[in-house]
Each structure stands twice: as structure tokens, then as C-alpha cells.
Design a protein around this nucleic acid. Structure first.
Lengths: 222, 222
DNA sequence: TGTACATCAGTGAACGCGCGTTCACTGATGTAC
DNA sequence: TGTACATCAGTGAACGCGCGTTCACTGATGTAC
């Protein structure tokens, strides 16, 4: 009786070394940014010679791609776990996003920062990104809508493929998009340091933006 | 009678070569991103040898700093010119911003994208960035406010140094901040390609966000 | 349990590259008298 | 106007570096009979 899922010691070892390589890669990225990532430097830190890494990754690009994949996975899992908690709502998701981003700003920028011209993520990564979006859609859909559909929602009605088979109305899609872009707007500027020296508390501003997303705007006309 | 502002031919020549160097630098940045910028490559394109560039810039860092400075200057000038046009309002500024960003996405990311860990802009650049913010503040201040002060505005009231001596009330500061972060949110995601494949028109979404900034939200309660 | 073989992690040397930067020098341009 | 000098743009050689990547090889680990 052979369990095909069982890992041989060698497979286990391989997996562990791959993990260690990535751990050091993240360390390097957090310190000096993704563009400074170097296979040789990682190998040295791991106490092995440069070429040894080629047993584990075909090259630098494959490593970076896997880091991106892991980062998206991490965010998707964080969202899934957050949404699973009782009483979780859109604010919970927003909080989880900010915490996740502050945990490792350069990881956030690896996904949402300056794009590398010419780089295109493979399909499976796009799929994980969709999971992230789906989590946002779910959270938004489970919340009182507040406010009429706006003109842009009509446009979205005809371009809703990106939402997959999510049954949400266009107004919900619009709100999900807004959730994403607005929070990314504050977060990325905060992480990039554009608020330092301005004095105010970025967390409060983030909260204010969130409040307007979750119905605060509904009271605005009063 | 000597005009101290008059430039000698040599000064004129120096200025021109500096300009040419920067032009090629921008070309390289637009093509391959700022991290790929190389002095030797620029020299080669200019038809001169690498070390020659050291007559014009102390090194790579000084060149990049000047590129950042120029980019901020360009944005500040664009805003100033836009605001000077008759009938210009917040929407005009927003439109100018998007046009400016689409003109050269990598230039936009040089200012607002992934930060280089450890890099700190010199003071004069910070000053130009304040000019940009001042232009936004002016535009927002000259527009009907719509909506009561929100809790975050109270916080801003105590942290308004970044607004310089601008006399705007805290609610206006809040709206200016929001203008900046929301438009940056959509713009940066659009420029980074996160909307490609999603189907909808980024320009329309941008317009929708703008509309909510300029009073659209005031009607939301209805 | 023991032997013969296959697998595969890791090494060390090497290749070619382009980078930023320095240095001593040449030759053209501008300046002073 | 002509000569002597100073300035300075640009060159070519060189330094040291670290990068990604290939290759033939060693030695340990696992597998088959």
C-alpha cells in the first residue's frame, strides 16, 4: 500500500531547502528591495555556493515568480481566514490588509508597486489574485449597500468578467473596486513614506477612508 | 557692463549636455525601469565614453536625484499651468494628473512607486512636492465644500503643518488628502497593469472616483 | 544483510558581462596681455 | 592681432566588483536484487 502523497526524505529535504532559500530571499527584499535580490548573496547566506541554488530554482526569474506567488497566496489566505471569523465584515478585511501590508512593506510593493516592464505573471498567479478579489466581493456583498447605483456601475454591468461567476450586482462590483483602489491609495503612499513628516496619523486616515466605504458616505447628505 | 546671468558658451554647452544625458536617462527608465538605469549605457547612447559623464554628474545617485527633482518640477508646473487656465477646477487638476501620469508611467512610479529603502530626498525636492500639494489645496479650497466636517478632520486640525501657511479649514485639508490618495490609488493600479484583462475602462472609473470627490457624494443620501 | 548501481545535492573553476568609479593624459576652447 | 597660458571636455586603460549561469566532477544518500 503506497500513499502517493507521502514524501520521501529527499523530497522533504528539497522542500525545506526551497523554503530556506525563499526565507533568505524575503529577508533580502525587505532590506534592500526586490531589485537587489541576488542568487549568489542568498547562497552565501545559506552557507552554500552559488550554483547549488540551481538544484532548486531554474534561475532568478523563477525564484521571483515563486515569491510573488507566495505573497499573493499569503494575502489570499489572510483574507480567507479573516472572513471566516464570526462577525467579520468589510472593516475586518480592511484591517487585515493594512496589517498584512505593514508586516512587510516590500512584499506589498512586490505585488502592487512599480511594475517591471515586460514582466507578465503566469496564469496561476492571476488566479490567486482573483481569489483576493473574490474575498473582497464576498465581504462587500454581505453588507448593506447604501446608496443608489452610480453611472459607472452601469458600465461595469457590461464588463464584469473579472468578477468570475460572482453573482453580485454591478453596484457591488463598483464598491469592491473602490474598496481596493482607495485602500491601496492610502496604504501605498503610507508605506512609501509619503506621509512621514506630515504629522497626521495614517491609521486614522485609513480608518476615515474605510468609514466612507462602509456607509459613512450614506450619511453625508445630512 | 556684465550681466551675471548671461551664460558663457561653455556653460550653455554644459547645460545642453546635461539635458541630453537626462533625456537618454528618461528613455532608459521608460523602457526598463529606474533600477536598470546605467551611466555607461547612457554614455554609449550619447556616443561618448563612460567616464565622460562624471564631468556632468558626480555619480549615478546625483543623476537619479536630479531626475526625481525634474519629475516633481514637471508635475508642479503642470498643476500650476492647469490651475491658471480660466474655469479650472478640481476636475481639471485630476485630468492633468492622469494625462501627466499616462505620458510616462515609469516617471510616475519614480515618484510614487516602490521606494528605494534608505533613499531620502533632499529638502529642495520636498519643497517642490509641497508645491504640488499646495496646488491641490488651492483647487479644493476654491470649490463648494459639500458635507460636514468628519471626525478625521478634527485630527487634521491639530496636524496641519504639512499644509504650510495655507489658510484652508481642516475639512479642506481632508478633502485634499483624499483627492491625492484616491486618485493615486486608481492611477497606480492602472499604470501597473492591474486592470488589464478586467475589461472595464479605467478612465471611466477614474472619472467616477473624481465625481465622488467633487460633490457627487453630496447627493448620495438621496 | 550485503553488494552493485542509480540518483542527486553540492562544489569549485570558469565564462562573459556590465557596472560604477579613478586616474593620467590629450587636445580643443576660451582668456589675458 | 598674436602669443602664452589656463581651463576643461573627453579618452582609454585600469580596478575591483558581483552578477547569472554552465560544466565536469565528488561524495553522500537511497534503491534493487
Amino acid at each position: 500500500m503506497v500513499n502517493p502523497e507521502a514524501k520521501t526524505p529527499r523530497e522533504r529535504y528539497r522542500a525545506q531547502v526551497r523554503t530556506e532559500i525563499k526565507a533568505h530571499a524575503w529577508e533580502q527584499i525587505a532590506t534592500a528591495g526586490a531589485s537587489a535580490l541576488s542568487l549568489n548573496a542568498i547562497a552565501k547566506r545559506l552557507g552554500m555556493s552559488g550554483p547549488a541554488l540551481y538544484r532548486y530554482y531554474a534561475g532568478r526569474d523563477e525564484l521571483i515568480t515563486e515569491l510573488i506567488r507566495d505573497a499573493y497566496r499569503s494575502l489570499a489566505d489572510t483574507f480567507r481566514a479573516t472572513a471566516a471569523r464570526p462577525g467579520a465584515d468589510v472593516s475586518a478585511l480592511a484591517g487585515a490588509l493594512r496589517t498584512w501590508a505593514l508586516e512587510d512593506p516590500q512584499r506589498y510593493f512586490l505585488l502592487f508597486g512599480t511594475p517591471v516592464p515586460g514582466y507578465h505573471a503566469p496564469d496561476d498567479i492571476t488566479a490567486i489574485a482573483s481569489e483576493v478579489m473574490a474575498a473582497i466581493l464576498d465581504a462587500i456583498a454581505g453588507q448593506p449597500s447604501g446608496g443608489p447605483a452610480r453611472p459607472f456601475a452601469a458600465h461595469l454591468e457590461e464588463h464584469r468578467d473579472w468578477a468570475g461567476d460572482h453573482p453580485a450586482p454591478a453596484a457591488t462590483l463598483h464598491r469592491a473596486l473602490t474598496f481596493w483602489t482607495r485602500l491601496h491609495g492610502t496604504l501605498s503612499l503610507e508605506l512609501a513614506g509619503h506621509f512621514t513628516g506630515m504629522g497626521f496619523d495614517p491609521a486614522l486616515f485609513y480608518a476615515a477612508e474605510l468609514e466612507e466605504l462602509t456607509g459613512g458616505a450614506g450619511h453625508e447628505g445630512m
